[in-house]
Each structure stands twice: as structure tokens, then as C-alpha cells.
Nucleic acid binder design. Structure first.
Lengths: 253, 253
DNA sequence: TTAAAACTCAATACAACGTAAGCAGTTTGG
DNA sequence: CCAAACTGCTTACGTTGTATTGAGTTTTAA
């Protein structure tokens, strides 16, 4: 496994051509049996269903009845394919939000959109956004965020800080929640079954007196109950931003 | 690559023995050349230096001058090794914090501790904590957090929600920041070099009028400047928690 | 019209991975 | 003192991404 996503260490022009769909220039050889679009769509389906770790070139190819190497005439590498997948599922259609929308409602909307994407396509969480694929949907997502925080009298740096704060929280919360489901698939063991295995053994190793608060918690809730409450966290984060925006307005800067 | 960390799909008792160091029972065969401790330490060193993706059983073994298979008499699988690594670097010594510490200072301290761990051991970010290794350090970290939010008059669910909120944000922000460095290593291209490659090509593909806010931002800052400001975000998050705690006190519940 | 260039897809191959199986040699409990 | 238990090596298998090669197909240029 080379890894997920190169951030375009290959041919940058080719990468952009693929992202922006500048494909159908006339080609010379035999008719192509597939298309970049279809390959990306199928790859997204497979990743949604079986996870990024079982998304292999061979499996994508097999689902079309061709060999793995055939795909390389559509996509230069697996990493570029993943980039295309990310832009495909990012903020589809990027709804602009109602005119005159309050910034808080806007941030909430963006957060929930990301949350929904992560929920439908958990594999996106495993792809680094350090160098996002510069495709239409990814850019539209950023544009929408910037528009939302644009009218608050914040500096551009502060605008980005706010956007990153919300995005980072959503990403973290989604990772946390998704991790559980991922482990259930990878191990074939539900969270409850896992706990049943470990619970009786713990007292053999753990001196509970060293962990009184933890022990109390385990007695009150099952330890399975540690659901990340996305809504709770999101409101706290937005409250924090709110405080900042208001005090920022008072100060005049 | 099987993946990172099973959450103990193997022998649970053996996993706990390893985590709690219940090792040196007398053994029959030849003297062991290594020890679980040394294997874990070396694996941490290698992962720190070259990343989790280049941490292979063969490389760990090679660094000791033994074969890959030799390691399997110390550690049942690579996934279990990763679990051991996580507990090794988690909250070392778990300082209890000054007595009478304010909850906000406590949460800040925990957040910065996590931040430091992620910074020193970025590979931890890639390991799911859906089923954390139930070792002494991981448990100590949770205990410390629970203690910090214990005296606020919150329900246990609320306490966990607050802890998860902070942890999720820190995790997200660290992932974001670390992703950049990871890509620099994987591609051999610095962020600046990457941008130099894409910037001139963008106008060929992107209709900037569709992305006015984005374009304005790119003109004001280089797009390289999108540093995640951890401190800024952390203070906003804590402000949000603060608002919640206070209004929660007023309401009486 | 035809030859060459450009293309598609398949077959084969390689290095790297985690780890199973088998084995030779070492230590120790009965 | 010997059989059981253990260590560490060798070999091997199935999987991964992708380089290479080659055969067959379509388009372009002469």
C-alpha cells in the first residue's frame, strides 16, 4: 500500500484535467470501454461499502470485468483516484444557503454537511486534506465557508481560524464515531462483545483504586455508552465562536 | 497491510498481560534476546522518525539484527504492537495537576498534553481510539480528564460530552496540521513547491469568478498560509464549555 | 490507400507486506 | 537426563500497487 493520496506528486496538469473533467479530447486507439467518471463512481461505491482499506485497483477493475492495469489508462495512480473520489463526494452542488443567512446558521449548515459526508463516506476521513484536490467541489466548499464568515469584520486570518476550528472539530468527532463502526467491521466483534471479553479480565490486571473516577463512570454507564455527541459539541464550538465575534465587534477590530 | 490496530480481536488475556507488563514468568527455552519493552520502544522510535506507514515488522526486526518472525514470540501481531505503542506514549506519568486546579486550566492542560503527544508521535493520530488499548497510561489519561470535570455538577453523560468535545477538537486540529508534514515526506515536495506547481495551472482550469471569496483570499495570503491555529481554536472551545457550565449552574442542573 | 503513430487492454512480473508452518537448536522441569 | 517447551531462522503464501511488454485497434498523415 503506497498510501492514500499524494497531493499531486505526479503530473499536476493531468491531475487538474481529471478533476475538472477536461477529458473527451479525441483519442487514437481502440474505443475506451470505461470512463474516468464511471471508474470514480464505482470506486466510491466500493469504498462506501467495504472501506478504503479494501479498495484495491484489482477490485475496482474486477467489478468492471477488466484487469487492474486497464484502469491505469484512465487514472494515473491509485492516489489520484482517491483525490478524484474526494472531490466527487465533497459538498455536492454546494448550495449557497438562503440569502441573508446568519453566520451561525451558515457555519452550522456547513458543519452538518461535512458531518453528513463523513457519515455517508467514512473513508474521506482517512484522506489527508493537507493538500486538498483542487477540484470544483472542494473549492466550492471553501468558497461557501469564506462567504459565510465574510461579513463579520474579521481579518482573513481570523476567518480561516474560525473555519478551521469548526472543520477540525467536525473531523475529530466524525473520526471518533466512525472508528467504532470501522472496528466492528475489521474485527467482526461488536463494541458490546468486545467489552464482554475485556470486562471480566480487567479486575485481574487493573487496580481500580488507582482509577476511582473511571471506575465510578464504568459503574454508572456501560463503557459502551461513550457516544460522541456531535450536536452538543457543535453548539459549544459555535458558542465559543459567538463569544469571539461579539467581543471582536466591541473592540472594533 | 492488515491495518492499524485490531482493538483486541486476538487473545484478550494475552493483550492485557502485555499492556500491564505481566511478562517475566519463567520460560523454558533459550534465553530471549529481546524483550517486549525493547521491541515497543524501538517501534515507537521508528514510527516517530519514518511514520506508521513505514513501520513494518521486517524493519523493526532488522533494527535488532533478527528476522521478522522472531518478533512474533514477543508480540502476537502487528496490531497488538501498535496498541502497546499507543499506551506507551499516552500521557506518560499522567501528572495529576495542582490541587484545586480550575477546571478550565485542567482541560487546557489535558488538551496541550494531547497536542504534545500528537506532535511528537504523529502516528498516534492514525490509530483509532474506538476501542482504546486498556493499558495503564490510557486509563490514567481518562481518569485525569474525569477528575478535572468531576466537580462541575454535570451529569456523567455531560462530563463525557465535554471531554469528547475537547479531545475531538485537538485530534482534528492535530490531524490537520500533521497532514501537511506527512505529505511533505511522502511526496518529497514542500507545501510551497506544491503550490508553485499548481498555481500557474489553476487559471487554466478554474473560473475565478465562480469563487470570488476564495480568489480574494488567495490574493491576500499565499494559500500556504492556512495554518491551523491550535491556540485560537482551543480558547474558543473552552469559551463554549464555559458558557455551558455557567448556564448549567444557573439552571440548577 | 496505406503505413505509422497512438492508443487500449491483458498477461506477466516484481518488490514489499503480514504472518503461517516447519525446523534446528537451547534451556529447564520432572 | 530426557522430554517438553521455547527461540529464532528459513521458506512460503496471498495481497498490494504498478512497471513492462506485447497484441490488437483506431486515427491521422502521406
Amino acid at each position: 500500500m503506497t498510501a492514500q493520496h499524494t497531493g499531486g506528486s505526479g503530473d499536476a496538469r493531468r491531475a487538474l484535467e481529471l478533476l475538472w473533467g477536461a477529458e473527451p479530447r479525441p483519442r487514437r486507439g481502440p474505443k475506451r470501454g470505461l470512463s474516468v467518471q464511471r471508474v470514480v463512481s464505482r470506486a466510491v461505491e466500493l469504498a462506501d461499502e467495504h472501506g478504503l482499506e479494501s479498495l484495491t485497483m484489482r477490485r475496482v477493475a474486477e467489478s468492471f470485468g477488466v484487469t487492474a492495469m486497464s484502469l491505469y489508462s484512465y487514472v494515473p495512480s491509485k492516489d489520484e483516484l482517491v483525490d478524484l473520489m474526494v472531490d466527487r463526494v465533497a459538498e455536492p452542488s454546494a448550495e449557497p444557503g438562503p440569502p441573508g443567512e446568519h453566520w451561525r446558521a451558515g457555519l452550522e449548515r456547513h458543519a452538518r454537511t461535512s458531518w453528513r459526508i463523513y457519515h455517508r463516506h467514512p473513508w474521506v476521513l482517512e484522506v489527508s486534506m493537507g493538500r486538498p484536490p483542487l477540484g470544483p467541489n472542494v473549492l466550492a466548499g471553501l468558497e461557501a465557508r469564506l462567504t459565510t464568515v465574510g461579513g463579520l469584520g474579521l481579518s482573513v486570518e481570523q476567518q480561516l481560524a474560525v473555519i478551521n476550528l469548526v472543520d477540525d472539530y467536525v473531523h475529530g468527532a466524525a473520526t471518533s464515531l466512525t472508528g467504532v463502526a470501522l472496528l466492528e467491521r475489521r474485527t467482526g466483534l461488536s463494541a458490546a462483545q468486545w467489552w464482554e471479553r475485556y470486562d471480566p479480565l480487567l479486575e485481574e490486571f487493573v487496580d481500580f483504586e488507582r482509577y476511582p473516577a473511571l471506575t465510578a463512570m464504568w459503574e454508572e454507564l456501560g463503557p459502551t455508552e461513550q457516544r460522541t455527541d456531535f450536536e452538543f459539541g457543535l453548539q459549544r464550538v459555535l458558542d465559543g465562536v459567538s463569544t469571539f465575534v461579539e467581543s471582536s465587534r466591541e473592540t472594533g477590530t
